[in-house]
Simulated scan of single mutants.
Amino acid sequence: MAGEDENYHPKDAIGTAVQGGLTTGVVGAIASGVQAALTKQNIGILGTFTKYGGTTAVFAGMGASYMFVRNVTANLRHKDDLYSSALGGFVAGSIVGVSKRSLPSIIGIGALGAVLTGTMTATHGLRGRRGDPDADILGEKDVARRTYRRPVAETIAELGEGRGIYGPGYEERRKQRLKETYGIEVP
């Protein structure tokens, strides 16, 4: 297929969907517990699941559908890029819209999910370039060291000696200073 990525490795869509559904389902159960705790009447521990179980189901459905759709589209296209992520985000957001029972909500929240997940994938999330596995981080750090390195004499002139910064002949100067100040002969 023209334009397909030679480095792409197929992903297990069902396995990651189950894992994503379980992970976000636990988050949804915690959110349901918080909802139950904030009610005025005491609904008990089972009220978390009977009255607010829909929250758990929506969270679990969002995680499972996002991971499934993202990995299936990536496997079909042989590319794991922002479009796969955006399509998964659209489906996950649409599940929230379905819980609102309104077609504009389905499309609107789905589009919001697509924009958010596509943007996070395109910008490598909150980590920036560190999330890019192909980035030559050591090379970039080496260039920064060579560009911004200052001579030791200049650093000592500004900060003084001590705290791990010692110039040549420091031990002799220290011995002389101790002898003059305290009269102590340092071996």
Rank of each mutant, 00 (worst) to 15 (best):
G25A: 05
V26N: 03
G28V: 14
G28E: 13
S32Q: 12
S32I: 10
A37Y: 13
L38M: 07
N42T: 07
L46C: 00
F49S: 03
T55V: 14
G61S: 03
R70S: 09
V72I: 13
V72E: 13
V72G: 00
R77H: 02
H78P: 01
Y83G: 00
S85D: 07
G88L: 08
G88D: 06
F90W: 07
A92N: 04
A92W: 06
G93C: 05
S94W: 09
I95R: 03
G97R: 04
R101L: 12
R101Q: 14
I106A: 09
I106L: 14
G108F: 02
G110L: 02
G110M: 06
G113K: 04
G118C: 02
T119K: 01
T121C: 04
T121K: 12
H124Y: 15
G125N: 08
G125D: 12
L126C: 11
P133N: 11
D134I: 01
I137M: 07
G139T: 05
E140H: 04
V143P: 00
R145M: 14
R149N: 06
R149I: 11
A157W: 07
L159D: 10
G160R: 13
G162K: 13
G162N: 12
G164C: 13
G164L: 11
I165L: 15
I165Q: 14
I165K: 15
G167A: 14
G167C: 12
P168R: 15
E172A: 15
